[in-house]
Design a protein around this nucleic acid. Sequence first.
DNA 1: TTATGTGCAAAACATTTGCAGGAGT
DNA 2: ACTCCTGCAAATGTTTTGCACATAA
Lengths: 138, 138
Amino acid sequence: MQENTPMRLTTQRQVILEELIKVTSHPTANEVYDMVRKRLPRIGLGTVYRNLELMSETGLILKLEVGGTQKRFDAVVKPHYHVRCIDCGKVSDVDMPVQQSINESAAKSTHYQILSHHIEFTGLCDYCTKAKHQTSVN
Amino acid sequence: MQENTPMRLTTQRQVILEELIKVTSHPTANEVYDMVRKRLPRIGLGTVYRNLELMSETGLILKLEVGGTQKRFDAVVKPHYHVRCIDCGKVSDVDMPVQQSINESAAKSTHYQILSHHIEFTGLCDYCTKAKHQTSVN
DNA sequence: TTATGTGCAAAACATTTGCAGGAGT
DNA sequence: ACTCCTGCAAATGTTTTGCACATAA
């Protein structure tokens, strides 16, 4: 099994990464596909999936396994937490410090070898909060 | 839109809940289907999905939106954290105290109204840890 | 009796994969 | 040249849904 063949620099990969870096919206694979297609109309959805997967394995980007039905992707690789709006599904970053010490607490409570953790907050984004207050007719 | 019609107590619902209570394995909908089918061979997969969804909305059970491709279900409703094995995908409970204060930290760092949080740890279960050590041929 | 729930099958999504031709090194 | 990569389309896997019949209340 070959491990260290470097990833080829293809136009598709460059554009996918560039588009992902442009946004902070944590797009799904399909949303990335839509963004990239504006520049490369003939790109295939499979290529987008393959490359997002590959880049996340390499550590070039982050694959977010947050709630909802689709995986999301993030060009910000530095560990950080996320909030997801229960109404609209939007995912945003939470700029609070990542507590590595939490891993040690967990290690004491399981038989697992703990490697990392992720916190997903759940709440209402400001837009949906306002929408709730405007009409209590629901 | 009717909101408060009580859920009917059907055999299917009883059996689904009973089977879920028996295990600590956080089964997927399909695994629940297999468990339940031993007692109700003619139950449909759709019924299992519908009822797991309904019970999680009611708060009778928990729907876990952890990593991996399938949702998982848990009869333990009390808030608690989970670990997922990156090798075999197994999900287990982490018996460490849930820190409500973490919600306030997050509230300061976002424009969201924070409602709750969930921590998913990632690591290697004891079985997979041993498997790793037995053969470094991989 | 009647609104809800069920089984079955099809549909709807999300993601992966096989393959023949194309492009990076 | 020789792999690796891409587009396309089909396959796979998960979840949802429409409908006619069944059943709890």
